[in-house]
Simulated assay, not measured.
Amino acid sequence: MKAKRADKIATGILYVVSGFIVLILVALLGYILIRGVPYITPEFLTQPSKSYQTGGGIGVQLFNSLFLLLVTLIISVPISLGAGIYMAEYAKKNRLTAIIRSAIEILSSLPSVVVGLFGFLIFVIQMGYGFSILSGALALTFFNLPILTRNIEESLKAIHYTQREAGLALGLSRYETVTKIIVPEALPGILTGIIISAGRIFGEAAALIYTAGQSAPALDFSNWNPLSVSSPISIFRQAETLAVHIWKINTEGTMPDGAAVSAGASAVLIIVVLIFNFGARFIGNRLYKKMTSA
């Protein structure tokens, strides 16, 4: 009887703690969305910002955030996929792999502002890329690489060993077994991790303040020259992202309707991150059902 009573009490405490955490999250998200959603209009999402005037939008910053996200994923996903496959399928348990795992753990625990300062010293100054999308994407690659690599590694390790044995028994090489059986089987988990990482990248600000810059030059969407600073596809131009724009509005205070713009931009940021997270679960579940016929 005492054991059952203690179990019920412990279970009740866990439910209370979990509910309290959920309430905090709902209250936080609700407060941001209730304040910001009324300001979200098509003009707000497409017009450029106005530093010293009212009526500005977040069009350029929103585009910069999405474009920077795309460039970062193009750089980081292949590296993370290769590292995850090596760690899960080929790496042996020795001192080298222990050092690699320790390096991954250390990198994943670094504050984003430290990654930003590293990117500023290496990419902005030493390599001469300046404040640019390329500098920001490379800094975010270092920021995102450890977590994405670990996610891919765990997704591959979750595949039962019998799948590997079946591939080898059919005469497939180890490489063919990994690429044709293991990776496709782990694809839902890998894709879920990539999309969740995308949401984390999209909301990052500290690392980009020191690398991508704090200004958003006007873009000419008819100019597709990748070397032009006014071209939307140039990776060598400064690019103030949505998260950096929110920080800038609340620190400089030069915008007359800064509170409204900040509230609307924060709501857009939250909505996009929620879309990434719920989209990851939806796509992952659909892929899993399709591939397993569940």
Rank of each mutant, 00 (worst) to 15 (best):
N94W: 04
A206I: 03
R286S: 09
F120C: 03
N277H: 12
Q163G: 01
K50R: 14
I100K: 04
Y90S: 03
E204S: 12
G12Y: 07
G30W: 03
I21A: 14
G59L: 04
S197Y: 01
V183L: 15
E204W: 03
I125M: 13
A207T: 06
Y90Q: 07
G258W: 01
I181K: 06
W224F: 15
P188A: 02
V113L: 13
F123H: 11
A139Y: 06
V37E: 05
A267H: 04
L73M: 14
A216L: 01
L287S: 09
A91N: 14
T54D: 03
T41C: 07
V114Q: 10
G12P: 08
N94Q: 05
E105K: 10
L138S: 02
G128A: 05
P78Y: 04
A169R: 03
P226D: 08
L170R: 12
N225H: 03
L121W: 12
Y86F: 15
Y129I: 00
D220G: 04
S197R: 00
P111H: 07
T11W: 08
R164S: 11
T179Q: 12
G199W: 01
R281N: 14
P188S: 06
L287H: 12
I79Y: 02
T211I: 08
Y86C: 04
G130C: 03
K92M: 04
R101S: 12
I104R: 00
G284N: 06
L227G: 07
S76A: 14
F282M: 11
